[in-house]
Design a protein around this nucleic acid. Structure first.
Lengths: 140, 140
DNA sequence: ATAGATGATGAGAATCACTATCATTAATAG
DNA sequence: CTATTAATGATAGTGATTCTCATCATCTAT
């Protein structure tokens, strides 16, 4: 949490951007969220602290956070797009297309396999997305 | 190509839908495309054959094709959403976030690993998406 | 600390991708 | 051939996101 803010501030300095209070307020609220949150819900939360903040700024901040690897957009085609705080602890998702349940998982083998594939094509990886769609235990 | 059309027709019969000419024209043009195509571009192509076809029908057809596993939506956050014909030969993507180059790859190990992960969580997989983001050979 | 330059913001318009509506057209069962 | 009803095309509507622009806030050099 504190690390996240520090990382954001380092990125802001690196890019020669300014340190604004709105941005910091949005980032703080976002880092505190546990689950996948919609932009609308994030705006609601942020407005409890600062009622004047606008939707565009929330989007701008989320874009910035994505740029520096602190946020990840999740669009599982379930009708709602969400964002989640993103740390070094990478994880992927299993999505039940029937009931909408989302399970997060981490696989070290997967991480290794990705690096192998990337190397084969001369790519330097910055990020990845892996989404497994199917039916969960209850639905199948 | 012929197989794809047959598969579509089987699905149409299965669902008790009707065999319309517009739908078939759109599907045929779509199956002929090589690359990832935008909906707008597909509409342009289709209108060379039948100028009366509307955008909504293209979307409706693409949705149907997705349902029966013959089309796949690709949204790499590059600003344009595309669709591509989808056959049993599954493949995934490497995306260069700098120049936008997209490389398709297939990994048998990856397919196997997915099944293993799914099994662990009691999921029956219907589909998956794997996107590796980074910098390609030229850009890094 | 102060003033000037310019980045950031908020409000709302604009855009993009897509879906819903609805009157018309066309496919299919009988 | 006719009735039924799915499919279509045009367009309005929607939701998510970006753009525009006047105003405000931050930083830099004094």
């Amino acid at each position: 949490m504190k690390e996240n803010l520090e990382k954001l501030n380092r990125y802001i300095d690196l890019k020669g951007l300014r340190h604004s209070t709105s941005r910091e307020q949005i980032a703080k609220v976002f880092f505190k969220t546990q689950d996948h949150i919609t932009v609308e819900a994030l705006l609601d939360e942020v407005r409890k602290i600062n009622a004047k903040i606008g939707l565009a700024t929330v989007y701008r901040t989320l874009n910035l956070l994505q740029e520096c690897g602190l946020a990840m957009k999740r669009d599982f085609d379930t009708g709602t797009v969400t964002f989640e705080p993103y740390s070094d602890a990478h994880h992927d998702h299993l999505i039940c297309t029937n009931c909408g349940e989302i399970i997060e998982f981490f696989s070290d083998d997967l991480e290794k396999l990705q690096d192998k594939i990337a190397k084969k094509y001369g790519f330097v990886l910055t990020d990845h997305k892996m989404e497994l769609y199917g039916h969960c235990k209850n639905c199948s």
